[in-house]
Design a protein around this nucleic acid. Structure first.
Lengths: 152, 152
DNA sequence: CAAGATTGAGTCATCAATCTTA
DNA sequence: TAAGATTGATGACTCAATCTTG
């Protein structure tokens, strides 16, 4: 069997994330707030300098693929939650900037999302387990973040 | 900002899994072996009693949704990697049984997958970090596994 | 009617091709 | 010609409706 020690950690990540994510997305949908990927994008924009980022940067900071960012920002723009602006310093680049309505949507979704994380994830971990998981996997994410193919 | 301690662990799981998974799937694709979900299904079948499982069981044990299992088993059947059998003890239930060709496909994919886990995940963790992650997230997966809606 | 499973239709995500500016 | 980004087409995934057996 391949269920040995070399894959236990990886498999636990797959299973836990998959199940918690499904539960959290169900909560968001039932509460009628924005979906997770939209939340993720708005959150990064909201904490960025000038409340804006390039498409590239958004893909690097979120779990959204580069081409998917274009579709999501287009949807968010249709809903009035972001504005799309051509970068004045480089005409090729596009900036997304969160609007007041976008920040409001973020504020409405935040409690639902936070409570989902609590109910479907944190609740099953001790504080020291949370700390250990964060420390370990932030390292993995950082290491992989530096070698990502920007054309993906 | 919502990037506080309550979400650090969760966010690290999202980012690490997302990035490692993309890298591993790229490896599998480049090596020309079966994709991850197919591997996942075949692996569970291979270690099950009689090398067979109900569709329900497959969904519970893998990261594949209940309805998605039907499509994947259909694909695997077309490729000759599993057989689909009506459960003799309950005519409503379908069993998938891995074939010799299925086991061969599993053997071809295993080294690629294991090496992907090593290169894109384990390598960035110490043995004790792997142990901590596995212990923590297996608990989460188990807790959530017991309350899954089988209709999903 | 409920349980197990599959399927049609629609949405989501991705790749390769394309457009625009540097 | 390359970099940044978008888009058309295709494949993956999901929900609700359906089929079949208990």
């Amino acid at each position: 069997v391949v269920h040995d020690d070399a894959v236990r950690a990886w498999r636990s990540v797959l299973l836990a994330q998959n199940r918690a994510l499904r539960a959290i997305e169900r909560d968001l949908s039932q509460a009628g707030v924005i979906q997770l990927q939209h939340y993720d994008v708005l959150l990064e924009l909201n904490s960025a300098p000038g409340r804006q980022l390039r498409m590239q940067e958004l893909a690097l900071r979120t779990v959204v693929s580069r081409t998917r960012v274009s579709r999501i920002v287009a949807d968010l723009e249709d809903d009035g939650l972001v504005e799309r602006i051509t970068d004045p310093s480089d005409g090729r680049a596009a900036l997304a900037r969160i609007t007041a309505a976008g920040r409001a949507a973020l504020r409405r979704a935040a409690p639902v999302y936070l409570s989902g994380i609590e109910q479907h994830f944190n609740r099953y971990l001790t504080p020291s387990q949370r700390e250990a998981v964060a420390g370990a996997l932030e390292g993995v994410a950082a290491a992989l973040g530096e070698q990502i193919d920007p054309r993906r």
